[in-house]
Design a binder for these strands. Structure first.
Ligand code: DGT
Ligand code: MN
Ligand code: MN
Length: 343
DNA sequence: TAACCTCGCCAC
DNA sequence: AAACGTGGCGAGGTTA
């Protein structure tokens, strides 16, 4: 094309050079930068589309090593690799399998993950996991109240940003709002907020508008602002002790990391406690934990006992909160399905 | 050739 | 890309 003559589209440096040669000023060629330019340059839209499909094909390629005997994929789960105490997963990573709405064609990668004959999946995921924990850690009065009354903050934020009634928020709009909520509580700035809203949410937002939105957010959740201010005051604390007793080396960590680490760590501890409870309860039953994705558990359960297993999984995940959280209630979204796509 | 880095993108 | 964070992976590109 006129913009990309003889360039390797897989090479960010060549792409950047080609764009700059055409007078497109950019530092990076990532989505945040290119997406707002896609309307003006159809070639950029094509490039982003190509990158998306290429990423999907790469993911599929990673999933080729099915064990000949078990018919399963056996990744490595490492409980002690991530800084915050999250599990990591590799070879292949099953914690970043594309969600169906992002695959780009009417196909599902997650639907390829199915239980063995005569079994079903129980899929259980903490609702608004780290928002609840942030409410607990910051002791924000309103946020705690919101969770006690069973409201949905992701949905609420989507509704505010899109200026649409709450009952008209689609699941993918809610999904987009997650990054806004977490961005805000973990210290995202006005420029980051504006860029994200424009590129991922499709809502053009100037930096001034972003700044106004941030202020509104922190006026609403005053305890979150106080938490941030407090964290700004002691930027040199070198140790963090988690509620479960782990000591985390904190030296050299910046403001945003200091906000995130206690929350993500507690979330990691929460699900680990839940898994420990659960693995024992499942021992004598025909059901096994086959995957975990940070705040989600996938259990493969014999069909005839799925109802009982569902109750056990939910109870274990809620019970884990009893020793770790004091003010905020937990909720678990749970479903039974014949594939990871959720039926 | 292999090891390493950066970039971009997937998930939570 | 920037004061959101935590990860893994492939491809290009560089270095040993
Ligand atoms: N800092 C940060 N953390 C994220 C982001 N996306 C997900 N997480 C973390 C915080 C979430 O609570 C946690 C689990 O992700 P989920 O997709 O299950 O979202 P969440 O539990 O908040 O909402 P849900 O009610 O399950 O749809 O992972 C993000 O964009 N930034
Ligand atoms: Mn969740
Ligand atoms: Mn989840």
């Amino acid at each position: 094309s006129a913009v990309f003559g003889q360039v390797n589209l897989n090479s960010p440096s060549q792409v950047k050079q080609a764009l700059q040669a055409k007078g497109v000023k950019c530092d990076s060629t990532g989505q945040e930068v290119l997406k707002p330019l896609a309307g003006k340059y159809p070639q950029i839209a094509s490039l982003l589309s190509y990158r998306k499909y290429a990423a999907m094909l790469k993911k599929l390629d990673e999933l080729k090593n099915v064990h000949p005997v078990t018919g399963r994929i056996h990744p490595k789960f490492d409980p002690l690799n991530a800084y915050t105490g999250r599990f990591s997963c590799s070879k292949p990573n099953l914690q970043n399998i594309p969600r169906d709405e992002n695959v780009g064609v009417d196909e599902s990668i997650r639907a390829c993950f199915v239980p063995q004959e005569g079994f079903q999946f129980v899929l259980a995921d903490y609702s608004q996991a780290e928002l609840r924990i942030a409410a607990e850690i910051s002791q924000d009065r309103l946020m705690i109240k919101v969770f006690k009354s069973g409201q949905d903050l992701h949905q609420l934020t989507a509704s505010r940003v899109l200026e649409k009634p709450i009952d008209q928020i689609t699941s993918s709009e809610r999904q987009c709002a997650k990054a806004l909520n977490f961005g805000l509580i973990y210290g995202m700035g006005s420029s980051g907020l504006a860029a994200y809203a424009s590129s991922q949410f499709g809502v053009p937002m100037t930096e001034t508008e972003a700044d106004r939105y941030r202020e509104k957010f922190f006026d609403t959740y005053r305890g979150v602002r106080t938490w941030h201010d407090k964290e700004k005051l002691n930027p040199h604390r070198e140790e963090l002790r988690t509620r479960s007793g782990r000591l985390i080396h904190f030296a050299g960590k910046g403001f945003t990391q200091r906000l995130n680490t206690p929350v993500q760590s507690l979330a990691a501890d929460l699900i680990k406690v839940a898994l420990a409870i659960l693995v024992r309860k499942l021992e004598q039953r025909e059901a096994r934990i086959i995957c975990m994705i940070h705040d989600e558990v996938v259990v493969e359960s014999k069909k005839s006992i799925t109802g009982e297993i569902e109750a056990i999984v939910k109870a274990a995940m809620l019970q884990a909160g009893e020793g770790l959280l004091t003010h905020v209630p937990l909720e678990v979204d749970i479903s039974v399905a014949d594939s990871w796509a959720g039926k």
